[in-house]
């Protein structure tokens, strides 16, 4: 498997860094153009999945061990939830971003950025986890 598909392997090596970079661009540029946490998470996840398909799941597991994706899954959801709690502590309603900064507009900006980050982390982590579990099955048989 490792000796065949030279073209695929070389091309994907060129492609994967731009894919991950593009995912980050989509993540943080979602306020201005199309994009946001959901899309960025999926693109980020698919970069890792492409790598896993071509170089084997074990290679990816060396970079991202299973416990780390599971941790990221929880971290993403908690980022979202705790942003809401932060608004609550600072004197607003749950998930009220206006109080996060002195200026409501800035508060909204921070709030959306953090929340989208939480969404992105959750989606990316869940996509990688799901793929790893599916691929790990065939490895076990």
């Amino acid at each position: 498997m490792m000796h065949r598909k030279v073209v695929l392997r070389v091309v994907s090596k060129f492609l994967i860094p731009p894919i991950l970079l593009f995912a980050l661009y989509v993540q943080f540029h979602g306020d201005f153009g199309p994009g946001g946490g959901f899309q960025a998470g999926v693109i980020f996840g698919s970069g890792f999945i492409l790598y896993a398909i071509l170089f084997g799941v074990e290679t990816v597991k060396r970079v991202l061990p299973p416990w780390s994706t599971r941790l990221l899954l929880v971290v993403g959801v908690l980022t979202y939830g705790l942003t809401g709690v932060a608004g609550l502590i600072l004197g607003g309603n749950y998930l009220d971003y206006n109080v996060l900064a002195h200026d409501p507009l800035h508060g909204q900006h921070y709030g959306i950025l953090i929340v989208e980050l939480g969404v992105g982390i959750t989606v990316a982590a869940s996509m990688i986890t799901i793929f790893n579990v599916f691929a790990g099955q065939s490895g076990g048989d």
């Binding site: 946001g36 959901f38 998470g41 999926v42 989606v123 799901i130 599916f134």
Partner: peptide
């Protein structure tokens, strides 16, 4: 629909896991 698509793929994955 944006959120529904991503949720849709997550539930599809769950269904496929059940199939396996």
């Amino acid at each position: 629909i944006l959120t529904a698509i991503v949720v849709g793929v997550a539930t599809t994955a769950l269904g496929l896991a059940l199939v396996v």
